[in-house]
């Protein structure tokens, strides 16, 4: 018992001294579990997140937009891959992680259970959803687990164009025909609150937060990040002439932040519980890709085995 205590002290001392924890270091079981849960959720979000945006690749309205969207959605696949790799360094295989997603056991960001109804949603997703994700990801570049932090550095570099391309789409629509303008405002109206929910429950109700902060897995609280996001986004909306759908939004001279309305957490919990508009479609699409891909993966392995055998015989 005393032994574990000592190991835990050594571990916490490393974390406190801002030293990265690496795969072969001793780490508390709960730290490992917490990381596996958080990183795999994050990976699943990247991969499931391909679906709502992929929905518009075929209908992108210009060749430039089509190429950008393809590259963007592909990047998200890469992000999922980097993160699954980080999970593997903790001893959990891609297959296991993937099975947990497909069986519905694992969670992913609820935001991707909302549908992309119009082209403006592609703008709103890039601007708001990637924008909110980036806040989190920039923080995670300094997370205490080495492989996770390194994956995040790579991801952040790639993310930098995601938010911009979305904001650009919104800006062009806002300046466009009356229909386009309406499309943009409608998308902002629908995506605003769900984006704020992406930062998670408020600090008071966040079950994992305190421990995650102590372990420096998280470095800033949900509420802090959410507030920075709101402050930045309100200004960006003003520049392109769109209105944030929150009647209580008001600049507070004292705090130097925006005051804002109330998040409808019943909706949030309902979507998490599986009752969002697209929960079933998203999981069904992932399961279909996986099961229909089985023969492809099997064929590649069978061929690799045959070739290895031939090489050995030669």
């Amino acid at each position: 018992m005393t032994d574990v205590k000592t190991l835990e002290d050594v571990f916490q001392a490393k974390v406190d001294a801002e030293q990265k924890i690496e795969p072969k270091d001793w780490m508390p079981d709960a730290y490992r579990k917490n990381l596996v849960r958080q990183i795999s959720q994050h990976a699943h979000s990247e991969v499931v997140g391909m679906l709502p945006e992929g929905n518009w690749i075929g209908r992108a309205p210009s060749l430039r937009r089509k190429a950008i969207l393809l590259a963007k959605v592909q990047d998200e696949a890469g992000h999922g891959l980097y993160l699954y790799s980080a999970v593997e360094t903790l001893g959990t295989s891609r297959e296991k992680t993937n099975d947990d997603l497909n069986s519905g056991k694992a969670k992913y960001s609820s935001i991707f259970n909302y549908p992309t109804l119009t082209w403006a949603d592609i703008g709103a997703v890039g601007w708001l959803v990637d924008g909110a994700a980036i806040m989190n990801q920039v923080m995670l570049c300094r997370t205490s687990y080495g492989p996770y932090a390194r994956a995040m550095v790579r991801i952040c570099k790639e993310e930098s164009f995601h938010q911009r391309q979305g904001y650009e789409i919104m800006g062009v629509l806002a300046k466009g025909t009356p229909e386009q303008r309406e499309m943009a405002q409608d998308a902002l109206n629908r995506w605003w609150w769900p984006s704020l929910m992406m930062f998670g429950p408020s600090d008071a109700d966040s079950p994992h937060s305190a421990q995650s902060m102590k372990w420096k897995i998280k470095r800033q609280s949900n509420d802090e990040l959410r507030q920075i996001f709101i402050d930045r986004t309100v200004q960006q909306a003003e520049v392109i002439g769109l209105t944030i759908p929150d009647p209580e939004l008001k600049w507070n001279e004292e705090t130097k932040h925006y005051d804002w309305g109330e998040i409808d957490w019943t909706e949030f919990n309902n979507v998490i519980a599986g009752n969002g508009p697209c929960n079933r479609e998203r999981l069904a699409a992932r399961n279909k890709a996986h099961s229909e891909g089985a023969w492809v993966r099997d064929a590649a392995m069978a061929y690799a085995a045959k070739k290895a055998k031939k090489k050995q015989a030669a």
């Binding site: 991969v47 679906l51 992929g54 959605v73 592909q74 696949a77 891959l81 890709a289 891909g293 993966r297």
Partner: peptide, 20 residues
């Protein structure tokens, strides 16, 4: 591009999109 997000393996999804 219709395959993007639906490929048989994540690595292959990325490869096919590069081609697109």
């Amino acid at each position: 591009g219709e395959w993007c997000g639906h490929g048989p393996q994540l690595e292959e999804d990325i490869a096919l999109t590069n081609r697109a």
